[in-house]
Amino acid sequence: MHNFITYYIGTGFWGSLVSSILPLVYIMPYALVTMWLELKISAHMQDRLGPMRTGRWHGWAQPLADVTKLLQKEDIIPAAADKVLYLLAPALVFIGSYAAYAAIPFSPAYIGADINLGIFYIVAVSAIVVLGILMAGWSSNNKWSLLGAMRTAAQLVSYEIPSSLAILAVVMVVGSFNLNDVCSAQSGWFWNWFVFGKFPFLFITFIIYFIASLAETNRAPFDIPEAESELVAGYHTEYSGMRFAFFYLAEYANMFVVAAVAAVLFFGGWNSPFGAYLSGPVWGAFWLISKGMVLVFIQIWLRWTLPRFRVDQLMYLSWKILTPFALLNIFAVGLWVVLRG
């Protein structure tokens, strides 16, 4: 039983519908909480307090207020925009992020689609995001948008290579693309997790994957596609209201996708750190989400620590450091897997 919903309701229309909506039920509160966390963490890292009034207790309702405000905003479409692409782009970006949730094993009892090519599928659908961003940038008919979109395309295409190579190293060790199998291969105590258990190969792989995944979420230090100080807001400069909110939501959804993938590939996914203790379907969801959130926290932490890369530095990092190391690493891991037998 890998999906308790289809197990009980069946794989018919309703079962598929409920099981595909379930991640959305998670994403919404997750995005609100993470938005609030980001506000507070960034503020405290700068010795500020951040929002303190909305909702009285430490501004907990600030994201709600922000979303409500965005809902009320006028949906502006530039006169010279390419309307069809312009309206389609935010949806496409969100679809790209959301589709990835289908193959994330939230718990031993819930994975949206238990497909054999799970991780491959995630890498593939994540590429739709690039398409959406390019569409947004092109259709806005705005130089900032177009520059941002071009940078995004360059960045995402560059960083997909080291990130895919890193994923491939794990797949070689496990021998399966299925993320549930990857989790099962790390069962037991936390020293069985790949990041610790297969030291140093998969630790290096994790570092490579994490850096590349940061770039895929378009967040600092890899936020040159949005680069407020040079590009206004990059590809979503012209968007307002709900469509802007979609980009925002997609960014946060994407953050969790890469964090969850990293958690599954390197930190045991839904496995409890303490062997059989505290494990089970519900605990599984708890552990995966906690691990994901820790990685999301590290993403936020890095964002408020590091300045933005220059475009050439970005390309240098991807092509001259991450890609060669990922290639060497995959070779070393392959050799190690073969020698171990």
């Binding site: 963490i41 405290h44 500020r48 932490w301 590091l306």
Partner: peptide
């Protein structure tokens, strides 16, 4: 370069982590 890059990032992260727990200067 790579080593320095990693090392300085760690230093930076230590600093921001330290500030995360420094009392804020904001006056409400």
């Amino acid at each position: 370069n790579i080593g320095k890059g990693f090392w300085t990032i760690l230093i930076g992260m230590r600093i921001t982590m330290k500030h995360l727990f420094t009392p804020a200067v904001t006056i409400q």
